[in-house]
Design a protein around this nucleic acid. Structure first.
Lengths: 257, 257
DNA sequence: CTTGCTTCTCCCGTTACGTTAGGTTTTATG
DNA sequence: CATAAAACCTAACGTAACGGGAGAAGCAAG
């Protein structure tokens, strides 16, 4: 009935470690029922129950400090706390899901193209990481409903778009320095615009808006890390300028002197 | 072009903290391009790019040590690592989902019954926490396919069963000490059997098996924490014995002398 | 020259133990 | 009963990624 277990037996019986038990003793979370004069710890069946409580609450994500409170206050009214805890866990889950989504996109591109330039990789990851912030930012430009539409694209479609963009950016980086007016370069810009149209649904105004915000975007690298270096950026800017002039769009960005 | 940012400016621009930047410097993860004679750190645009890499990889769940490797080895061949990382994240996600499920069950019962005895609560949580281990254990008793069926009950059904069980156990705990042969007590046991039948699909053999494993179960508290105290357990045992005898089932457990 | 802002270098605190190191006690065996 | 082996003890450092504070020094403006 009133069995006594040495710390080793107790650890085995309960599936914890000796070290953990000693630690719980140290922080006054679970003290053995009996300590021999020589300092050896002996646990009882009652301690098993206590430990089970600890294990269960730990599983639910509580810190040992919280658990200590619960066990000592004895009220055992977890209800509010459980709801809060669930909130926490749901948030963590959402975070992880976002991370997994980012990994999926990255893997998809890697499979598709073997490897990817690090800067392009970074800006891809960032797009997913900062999704919510980007949404907020966009809401300052266009009506909220339209923003939601933009972000409601299916996963496969997004993966495809990302892969296309990554591929295009790689080619653009390779073409840096070439004559911005050449057919090849203008073709790349055309590809870029095609993707933009595909995403934005052909709204030229928005593209125009975004181009005018260029400076603002570049000045906020935490919100929009660029996949291009400053020199690349400048070259792309020139090519874009040519493209837009040919299309008859007024360009009000600063002239790259 | 070659702008220099003080640590404060840089922190604001990149969305990190001064402390983090100093830490990255300390562990040789990101050193400022320039350090003034007086020891002040100045960062360049190039450092922004480096930091963005760090932030992106951190988002994907890599440790700073891993990130350091990636950045220094410069191969930038993340492909294998990304797949591994995804595995990790999927596991974490599954863990969290299990925790959330446990919290849901607990909340459901709390809503249903206001409060719950701590021991019952514990064994409920444990059922979810140890699900996989319980499955394995059961596979030693009955064919694998049947085990899968047992665990393929819908969430709502499981919640309902758990709530019913919790309610019943509460009443049983209240009835401890009463005459095991009384109609009331036997009614509770009958309720218990009803639930068991509901879960196990009326296979009396399995119930019999489980009863014969009683001792084994009680001796492994890490696998099966009991919602009852030893005294309660003994009382329930007696009532169960009466019940089974009346039903004409042979009882080969040890007589509670 | 003083005021006030920014930055600097220590250094301790955080979580839940894992992992030695070095010493003592209990138990098993000859 | 002596001794060896197993189990146990305390003390102390290490972990990851910073947060926060103390006290001192640099730097621009009035």
């Amino acid at each position: 009935m009133a069995e006594k277990y040495s710390i080793g037996e107790f650890a085995k019986k309960t599936g914890t470690t000796i070290r953990a038990l000693r630690y719980y003793d140290e922080i006054h979370l679970l003290k053995p029922t009996l300590v021999s004069p020589s300092g050896r710890r002996y646990y009882s069946n009652n301690d098993i129950i206590q430990l089970q409580k600890i294990v269960a609450l730990k599983f639910l994500g509580y810190s040992l400090e919280k658990i200590s409170e619960f066990l000592h206050l004895k009220d055992w009214d977890l209800k509010d706390s459980l709801a809060f805890q669930k909130q926490e866990m749901v948030q963590r889950k959402e975070h992880i899901e976002r991370v997994i989504r980012a990994l999926d996109h990255a893997l998809h591109i890697m499979e598709d193209q073997g490897t990817v330039n690090s800067s392009i990789f970074i800006s891809l990851i960032n797009n997913i990481q900062m999704e919510d912030e980007h949404k907020e930012w966009l809401k300052g430009l266009i009506p909220e409903s339209k923003v939601e539409v933009l972000y409601n694209i299916s996963e496969e479609k997004q993966q495809e778009l990302n892969a296309r963009t990554a591929f295009l950016f790689t080619k653009m980086k390779e073409a840096v320095g070439q004559n911005p007016e050449s057919d090849k370069v203008q073709g790349l810009i055309q590809d870029y615009m095609d993707i933009a149209e595909d995403v934005l649904g052909g709204s030229l105004e928005l593209i125009q808006d975004l181009i005018n915000r260029q400076v603002e975007i570049e000045d906020d690298p935490k919100l929009f890390p660029s996949p291009f270096t400053p020199e690349e950026e400048e070259w792309v800017g020139k090519a874009m300028e040519v493209y837009l002039k040919r299309k008859g769009v007024i360009f009000d960005g600063n002239e790259t002197s």
